[in-house]
Design a protein around this nucleic acid. Structure first.
Lengths: 348, 348
DNA sequence: ATCGGAATCGCATTCGTTTGCGATTTTATA
DNA sequence: TATAAAATCGCAAACGAATGCGATTCCGAT
């Protein structure tokens, strides 16, 4: 739109000086006399001059904009991350452009291309569930686009990432169940492509191993979408078994929630008959009946850290013309124990 | 960042023609011969030419970017709206820049200014809870910035808006409670500045009036933040009354949820002793115990409609140099009846 | 009075693209 | 063949700001 904003030229014309002098005066360049500076600044103030960011972006090849690619906006954890990103980006004077891949690899590709064409200064990316090839990412990295991954990261990428300690979180959750006296613990596994899925499964296995408990492979049920419906279906399958589990550790809260519904409908008690633990500590988890024990992921902090890493990378690169060495931030999870897993009735 | 992207000049140099010819060839201008067009297009393809959007924006005074100002990103309804906005913006070739006011008027002001300085083509705004003055908005409108409001709208603004029929939704919810045999219905009222608060209260009143039921003003309790905690406190206050209500209609789901907790802790049954209805149909509402009856707002559709209105306004204005007359889209709500209000046991 | 140097400031270019207008070439018409 | 008309294309300015470098002015020192 043409907003008829005042430009540096208007000020120059009015004052009978050149645009370059105005430009320098506004940035307090030593070449300019105090009187001219004063005149320029006063007129700029009076006319409410605002520099044209687009012209600046073109001139400096810098847009002060970060691109965000996220699987889904309508998702408690991810929207929390966005909020964290927005928080530090705002403070640092960056805009954020949001795109969502809708868990589609195809869409993720076009999103990344579009962000590149918008000349964002860097990208914050969390991979889609479908993503199993990485040429689109490698291509961007080859062009030198600063990128930081979060949560669902590109593991072999030579770039910074922010993750939570999924393995430890899953292990702690499982250990908690063992402590509660559970012997046959089932796991609802998440999307197979994602690294976090593997980490959580691994944490589950390690906890069992630590207590010399056998891993019953048939107690590991896949929930490739991680939805409530899949949680229900998985629980139904588990309940039909000759020797059903006495606890379920789910890869996320919706799956856990689905399992809880099935268990309750079957007339079984949570946690007495089957204890349940989820992952991510969604907004609704504390409101369930019984309240769901879950592994809390610090989403806001993750967004903040990711944005900080990216901005630092951008600014170091523009000043020193060299990429800082990639960093990996691992954020701690926190097990929130609630009634869905408290067989003993005592808090840990 | 400098990505060393190929420009129109590179193509021109390589082909020994001028940049202007390349520009015209790429846009299929009739002045250019088919042979040159072919040569240009092939080379552009080969070099993977991508136009520099920043330069385009400067030249055309159009950024193809929409600014969004939203009270909170981590909010089921609002994130759903964002998703709807993103959906149509993406299809129409627009980027969206997200800012959140965090329910602060001050932050809302700076957000809007920042978006203006970023030269967005238009803004999609939902007001903060605190917003009780509108100079910052009037100023933008005076400059001719296309704006569309959604949900929490600036009512006297001469601009398009998208709202849900809060009055009808609230009325329908209250009528439903009356139908269930409730006589003393309480209302948990929302943030006082917001129009939606008034509409919902009005709908509540109309429903009672229609059935010749008195409005007990002491049964209208304010929840200015609309949080779970306030819902709890409000319910405690109501339960202490000599003649407590037999139903509660809350301005939103968290408040309803808080009330439910208090009611259950007091040993009362929902809906037998007190029926509860919420508003917005949050993600968790169906998962409560009992599942919460709520007025569903089509958030995704709201985002879509708002973005469509804004984009149309932008494009009409740029072509015909005149603003289209403001439109107000009123989206229908839908009462989702669940167990928290079903005294009779039969669905409507 | 002359010169040197510091203090100020403007010209011209740059970023990448678009576009009015003029220039040149080719083709068609008489 | 002369001439008009059409077909192609380039020049230059524009969008708004930044900046290297050259130009000008002014002051004090000699």
């Amino acid at each position: 739109m043409k907003y008829n904003q005042v430009t540096i030229k208007d000020i120059a014309r009015e004052l009978g000086i050149s645009p370059s002098t105005v430009s320098r005066a506004l940035k307090d360049h030593p070449d300019i006399s105090p009187e001219t500076k004063k005149a320029v600044n006063e007129l700029a103030e009076k006319l409410n001059y605002q520099p044209n960011i687009v012209a600046l972006s073109l001139r400096q090849s810098k847009t002060n904009t970060l691109g965000v690619v996220i699987p889904e906006i309508v998702h408690f954890f991810f929207s929390t991350v966005i909020s964290g990103i927005e928080d530090v980006a705002y403070s640092a004077g960056y805009n954020i452009i949001i795109t969502q891949s809708n868990e589609s690899l195809q869409r993720e590709k076009t999103d990344i291309k579009a962000l590149f064409n918008s000349r964002v200064d860097g990208m914050l990316i969390s991979l889609s569930r479908e993503t199993n090839s990485f040429e689109h990412i490698d291509a961007m990295m080859a062009k030198g686009v600063p990128m930081v991954f979060f949560d669902r990261v590109y593991d072999s990428a030579n770039s910074s990432k922010v993750i939570v300690d999924d393995l430890s979180g899953a292990k702690e959750a499982t250990l908690h169940l063992i402590e509660q006296g559970c012997k046959r613990i089932a796991h609802l596994e998440g999307p197979p492509n994602l690294d976090i899925t593997k980490q959580r499964l691994q944490g589950f296995r390690e906890a069992l191993a630590e207590h010399n408990l056998p891993v019953h492979e048939d107690l590991i049920v896949s929930c490739p979408q991680g939805t409530i419906e899949e949680g229900k279906a998985a629980a139904e399958k588990l309940l039909k078994m000759a020797n059903p589990p006495d606890a379920i550790f789910a890869t996320n809260d919706p799956a856990a929630m689905g399992a809880m519904q099935t268990i309750k409908e079957a007339g079984l008690k949570i946690p007495q008959d089957i204890a349940v633990v989820g992952f991510s500590n969604w907004f609704f988890s504390s409101l369930m009946d019984p309240p769901l024990t879950s592994v809390d992921q610090p989403g806001f902090e993750m967004g903040q850290e990711a944005a900080k890493l990216l901005i630092r990378q951008i600014e170091v690169k523009s000043k020193e013309h060299i990429d800082p060495t990639p960093e990996t931030k691992i954020l701690k999870t926190r097990l929130i124990v609630r009634d869905s897993s408290l067989k003993s009735g005592k808090k840990k």
